[in-house]
Write a protein that binds this DNA or RNA. Sequence first.
RNA 1: GUCCCCAUCGUCUAGAGGCCUAGGACUCCACUCUUUCAAGGUGGCGACACGGGUUCGAAUCCCGUUGGGGACGCCA
Length: 499
Amino acid sequence: MLSLSKHEGRSGHGRAQLFRIDFRPAKDMTVVSRFAPSPTGFLHIGGARTALFNWLFAKHHGGRFLLRIEDTDRQRSTQAAIEAILDGLTWLGLDWDGETVFQSTRAARHAEVAHGLLDAGMAYRCYCTPQELAAMREAARAAGRPVRYDGRWRDRDPAEAPPGVAPAVRLKAPQTGETVIADRVQGEVRVGNEQLDDMVLLRADDSPTYMLSVVVDDHDMAITHVIRGDDHLTNAFRQSQLYNALGWTVPVFAHVPLIHGPDGAKLSKRHGALGVEAYRDMGYLPEALRNYLLRLGWAHGDDETIDTEQAIAWFDLDGIGRSPARFDFAKLDNLNGYYLRAAADDRLVGLVLPRLERRLGYAPAAAVLDRLRRGMGGLKARAKTLEELADNALFYARPRPLPLDDRAAALLTPAARARLGRFAGLLVDAEWTAAALEAAARAFVEAEGGKLGDVAQPLRAALTGAAVSPGVFEVLEVLGRDEAMARIDDAVDAARAPD
RNA sequence: GUCCCCAUCGUCUAGAGGCCUAGGACUCCACUCUUUCAAGGUGGCGACACGGGUUCGAAUCCCGUUGGGGACGCCA
């Protein structure tokens, strides 16, 4: 029997020791993890992280990652939410093994287990009405006592049951001693059994409760590791009691701290508790979100940019911290910029195209597509998100004459336009590569006197309509001689137009 | 109210009693590179919540305080 104190269990060192002794899985034990969302809304960012951790853990150990939709609340579960969750996981690249399990289809099995407990005398029928229960809770709260069911039907003769009241089935939970959870993240957590009441297993309509369903399904699906948000930590005590009553092996628990908003409070919609599809729409790459979520509450030394292959090699439960982390868009942006720069140009073109179409109101022409392909290197280096990338790419897609923003207009002074006109004359039969064009520009300013910017900036304004863009000679090359000369002419001609 | 959990720069974190004058990353600032803006490079600002112990020695172990979070449904 292991008799480490709570505190030894909590320290990093002690924890490692504790689990070396207690939890080293048998050599032939295959890890089976699962993600078990309830389809009452989209796949939010916290759920996505939980799914990622489970997925990574299974991959790391060469095990299986299963998906179970906990749709036992028929009122609140929707088909749209199920699809949103599946889409979200798919977009994130978190594939699951085997068929998706729908918990609602297993109600009969759940009830069967509960009735077995009833037959064995380990559960009992409770005839309390909802009103009675509510009154009980209110009285306890008012008296400053713990709020829980008092077990009034636990040993009462069912013959005394009031007529017309359909009973719920409750577990006859231990009333003395304590229940201990050996949690891979939280350490050894214990609670006195007098703190826990007799949980409902079956409702009055014979439908199973979440508490029953989870335990039965995790057991039947042979789940070895339950990794979930630590809002479930107290549920783990009750579930542990149920496992014991059933004589089943308790899985390894790992309760991961929740993600908080920037103000430290529970993540709300305002903070970013959005569906993953919202992050997709905001222009984040799935690999960036995966990396960000991985580092939120988990660390591997000083490593920051960790691709998925590396994450699989490194991920384990010991690296998970126990304090809640706050969601930070600035860091996500930074990581997204990194993965944007690393992404293949063709892939980015595909992602940016629909965004351009939305801005333009029509599908860009083939020539534009070609420009995007060739100009992507300069474009992707300057964006944090695909939305920003699309904004910056717009000048490649817009028809002439290009609208000028204020700073670009300010750049095109009469003198600058005149200079641009003279430079354009040299361009007519120049070799059309960025390097040659830059050399030409340098030669031009050398001859005229002045800095490269004197010609490069007006050129940028003429070509892109903005004062900020990818390298102007790259833009020149990508646009091609005809389009570039036409854009320059537009700007120069405007100089001749009467004010 | 009861129970449980947490506490290192603004944020994410490294940290296993001496390698800590506390490291990295994001943000911010400066410089650099430079045709713009990014990216890159260099540097800077910036933290062990507080109080007691234990110890030759504490960010690290113990106790308490304070602050934060979570759970207390015939929801999941």
